[in-house]
Write a protein that binds this DNA or RNA. Structure first.
Lengths: 246, 246
DNA sequence: TACTGTGAACCAATTCACAGCC
DNA sequence: GGCTGTGAATTGGTTCACAGTA
């Protein structure tokens, strides 16, 4: 390993400590990881930023800049070694270790997640499924038995759970979040359609199906009113009278 | 209505045409809408930007700027009329009309979505559930009968579907997307863990459960390596030797 | 030669801070 | 006095374009 390579690595490390990896970049690393896995399965050993970017659905400049936050893992004139980069990204994300997950609220969505293979394959271990409903408690989903909500704290402790998934109705989400946090969970994935408040230092990510649809509806509407000759569903605002004339 | 009010409305309309509402703002409008609905149910008639922002989990400056893209719907010194603003946002998003949705791929997740009440309550109508599996086709989920994938195009035509939801395995997602687009669908919500390519003008939003978990894992790992005395799971980079000394 | 890695330029989004209005 | 609406300042993210190098 040359001196200049050392220097570059040191600079990358400095950069990382100064500002850390940008959030937008972190959110794309799993996408790159998936693209690399697909390429690896196809037997591709080396890929240029252009190829990789195409597989990940981004442009190549963005991909190169993203990867540069992790270090200099490519080779000029050649590209990236698929396996090597895959390992580096895995490590950066933290997938070289396993994370225990508890799912709270075993309705339709909770059941679907419990059965979802993609969880288990990527370093996530479902430690427990929990619900309040006495009808559900004790029944089996795959290899898991649904446990009682009253035992939530014990389960978190026993299985060293660090990530909680909330799939309860909206009304219970905040209460569940509070209990998760008190029991030591520091990352929450919230599927309940409500805002939850957590203390500083606890990460929350929100997935909201109906919000996604509403965003699409907004764009649908815009298309309909702009390029079609269609009249908007309701008067847009007072000024539209002027435009419409008649 | 005063002249100055008219002028303000006209300016807001101009602003909207010049640049449109920013994407980041569009993504938050459904959140505000939900917050307003909760307030309305609690009998609150008027809310300040501060109150509303708290209910929506954002800061008040952001909320005010967001709302300003729609027009001037507040009253200085008072706040926003909850019902009036609720209607204005609904209209902006396009929820004053119904949107027909087809769900393709009725596995765990597809079933969960088909049963999810939040869809139907907010102006979305599930027009059809579609799958390739002959075992599934013909069986009932709630009020719906699962239909054959071969009839996808007909169903889209017949029910005037504009939004497609993909809950198939990754390998089939692109093919499904192609068929949806060819049949006239212009918005897609993709739950399959793969990148899909669509022509210009078709909106795609992606929801990926395992990516969300991976983002949380990244932050978990960072917490563990920074504030704990814990050793990183693997050597971070050559420079860490220097720091660790021994 | 063909590619990466990255400053510099650009664009989008957020936050500040206050003028304008009820 | 208390609030909204919004220019101006700032921060964060993306894209350009090319120097550096295997």
């Amino acid at each position: 390993m040359t001196d200049s390579r050392n220097r570059r690595a040191a600079q990358a490390a400095d950069l990382r400590q100064q500002r850390g990896t940008p959030e937008a970049t972190v959110a794309r690393l799993p996408v790159y990881l998936r693209a690399l896995t697909v390429l690896a399965e196809q037997g591709v050993a080396t890929a240029s930023s252009e190829q990789l970017a195409a597989a990940a659905g981004v442009n190549s400049a963005k991909l190169r800049k993203d990867l540069s936050y992790l270090g200099s893992y490519g080779t000029r004139g050649v590209g990236y070694d698929v396996e090597y980069l895959r390992y580096q990204i895995s490590r950066e994300i933290g997938l070289t270790q396993d994370w225990s997950v508890v799912i709270v609220g075993i309705g339709n969505l909770g059941q679907a997640l419990a059965n979802y293979a993609g969880f288990t394959t990527r370093g996530f271990r479902i430690a427990a499924l929990v619900d309040t409903d006495p009808e559900l408690v004790g029944s089996e989903i795959g290899v898991h038995t649904i446990e009682n909500m009253a035992d939530l704290e014990q389960l978190i402790e026993r299985h060293q759970v660090s990530i909680g998934v909330i799939t309860t109705p909206a009304a219970e989400a905040q209460n569940v979040a509070d209990r998760l946090v008190r029991a030591g969970v520091t990352s929450i994935l919230n599927f309940a359609p409500s805002v939850i408040n957590v203390p500083e230092g606890v990460q929350v990510r929100k997935v909201d199906l109906s919000i996604e649809l509403q965003i699409l509806a907004y764009h649908e509407q815009r298309k309909a009113t702009v390029d079609g000759a269609e009249v908007p569903p309701a008067m847009t605002d007072p000024t539209s009278k002027v435009v419409e004339a008649s």
